[in-house]
Structure formats: C-alpha cells, structure tokens
Amino acid sequence: MITMMRVDHRLIHGQVVLSWLTQYDSDAILIASDSVPADDFRKQTLKLAKPASTKLVIKTVDDAIAAITGGRTDSYRLFILTESVADACRIAEACPQIAHINLGGTRPATDAERLTATVSVTSDERTRLNALADRGLRVEARAVPSDRPIVIEGTR
C-alpha cells in the first residue's frame, strides 16, 4: 500500500523521518530519482539518514514505476520520495495506486509560482498537478503534518 508520495529536493531529513513516516505509519521508503542510483555517496548518506526499522529502496523513476505497477511494493506501507514535481507527476500519471502527493520542498526557480515558503511550481508543473487533482488525487503543499495544507484543487 502506498501511504503517500512527497516531493522534497532534500529527500530524507528530520521532517520526513520524524513527522511524515510516523503520521502514515510507513515501513518502507522508495526514493525515485534518476540521479541518486548512480551516486554512491548520496546513496550511503540516505541509508544513514533513514530510521533503522524502515526499509529503503532507491530506484530510477522508470524502475520505481515498474516496481509499483508490477506489485513488488504491495507488501509495504510505502512512502515515496522524489526530488522534483516532474518526477512525482511521471509516477502518479503512470501509477493509479497513487492517491496523495505532498509538496514539501522544491528548488527555488525564478519563473515559478510560490505556494509556500518552501514550495514553488512552474506553470507546466501546475498544469500537470491540476490534471492529477482533476483525476481525484489529493495534491497539497505543506512542510509537516501539523501545517495547514495548501490544496491544489484542479480545474474542474
């Protein structure tokens, strides 16, 4: 079961470990990134940052989609982390199992709409997120579970 997908360019850090994993009682983290699997230093750092009781899997975005749609993640309470809105949208568009996207931290961009202090989206990203919301996904921006969510309603 997929508990949630979060976009956070920092990937695993205190908010993820202390707040979100606990909130959703997740027992596994899937990092979906096209750059992390090829970076041994980042992989080691992420392995050290995860809770000892939590399984960590690091895959490319295409391999993550294949694992999710192929049922290989079904036995876990899976928390998915991506570094970008584009990667989260790719996964959500391909995986009907995704019901919730949390935008927690994006890299600043000059041509982006600011949703919160830590989340900005480009017009292309906003269009894709609106389409996902129209499909029934809960799409929100918030740093921690106790924050008030900024919900992306879609276009309907």
Rank of each mutant, 00 (worst) to 15 (best):
V36C: 07
F41W: 04
Y24D: 01
V139I: 15
A49Q: 02
D39A: 06
V121A: 05
A38G: 07
V57N: 00
V36W: 15
A99C: 02
R77N: 12
R135V: 07
D40Q: 15
A86Y: 10
D40S: 15
K55R: 11
V121L: 04
L132M: 05
S35P: 11
A92C: 11
E83Y: 08
T127K: 10
T60L: 09
V119S: 03
K55S: 04
T116N: 05
A109K: 13
L56R: 02
A131T: 15
A117K: 15
D40N: 13
D134E: 09
E140N: 08
D74T: 14
L48K: 03
A67G: 08
A28E: 07
T106F: 08
L103W: 01
S120I: 09
R90I: 13
F41M: 13
A133K: 03
T22A: 08
C89W: 04
T60E: 10
S26E: 02
R77P: 03
D34R: 00
E83G: 15
G70T: 11
R77V: 12
C89F: 03
I98N: 00
T22N: 09
L56T: 05
E140F: 07
S84E: 14
L81C: 04
C89R: 00
P96N: 12
Q23F: 12
D124C: 10
G105H: 01
L78V: 10
E140G: 02
T82E: 09
D87N: 06
L81H: 05
I29F: 11
L21D: 01
L103P: 01
L48G: 00
S33I: 06
D25S: 13
A32P: 09
R42V: 12
A49T: 03
G136L: 11
K43P: 04
A99V: 11
T122E: 00
A28S: 05
I65W: 03
A52K: 12
Y24F: 15
A133M: 06
A133C: 07
I68H: 10
L46K: 02
A86L: 12
G104C: 04
R138I: 14
C89H: 07
I80D: 05
S33N: 00
T110A: 13
A38I: 11
T122G: 01
A117N: 14
S120D: 12
A38E: 14
L132W: 04
T127C: 10
N130Y: 11
A94N: 01
P37H: 08
A143V: 13
A99I: 11
V119T: 01
I31Q: 01
C89A: 15
